[in-house]
Lab assay of single mutants.
Amino acid sequence: DVEPGKFYKGVVTRIEKYGAFINLNEQVRGLLRPRDMISLRLENLNVGDEIIVQAIDVRPEKREIDFKYIP
Rank of each mutant, 00 (worst) to 15 (best):
D1Y: 15
D1F: 15
D1E: 14
D1N: 14
V2K: 02
V2P: 07
E3A: 12
E3D: 08
E3F: 13
E3V: 15
E3T: 14
P4C: 10
P4V: 15
P4N: 10
G5E: 06
K6Y: 09
K6M: 11
K6Q: 11
F7Y: 13
F7Q: 06
Y8I: 02
Y8F: 05
K9R: 13
K9V: 12
G10S: 02
G10W: 15
V11M: 11
V12F: 00
V12H: 00
V12S: 00
T13F: 05
R14M: 09
I15G: 00
K17P: 15
K17C: 10
Y18W: 14
A20M: 03
F21V: 10
F21Q: 05
F21I: 12
I22K: 00
I22A: 00
I22S: 00
I22C: 01
I22P: 00
N23F: 09
N25R: 07
E26G: 13
E26V: 12
Q27P: 03
Q27E: 12
Q27D: 13
V28W: 15
V28N: 08
G30T: 02
G30K: 02
G30D: 02
G30E: 02
G30I: 04
G30A: 03
L31N: 02
L32S: 01
R33N: 03
R33D: 04
P34R: 12
P34W: 10
P34I: 11
R35D: 09
R35V: 10
D36E: 06
D36G: 03
D36C: 07
D36T: 02
M37K: 02
M37S: 05
S39Y: 13
R41F: 10
R41Q: 13
L42H: 04
L42K: 04
N44P: 02
N44S: 14
L45T: 01
L45Y: 01
N46P: 01
N46K: 15
N46A: 15
V47H: 04
V47T: 06
G48S: 04
G48H: 05
E50G: 12
E50M: 15
I51C: 04
I52S: 06
V53L: 04
V53T: 01
Q54Y: 12
Q54A: 07
Q54S: 06
A55P: 06
A55E: 03
A55K: 03
I56L: 14
I56M: 13
I56W: 09
I56V: 12
I56Q: 07
D57C: 10
D57Q: 15
D57S: 15
D57M: 12
V58A: 05
V58E: 03
R59F: 06
R59T: 05
P60D: 08
P60L: 10
P60I: 11
E61M: 10
R63W: 11
R63I: 07
D66H: 08
D66Q: 07
D66P: 02
F67P: 01
F67A: 02
F67D: 02
F67H: 02
F67C: 03
K68E: 05
Y69F: 12
I70T: 12
P71N: 08
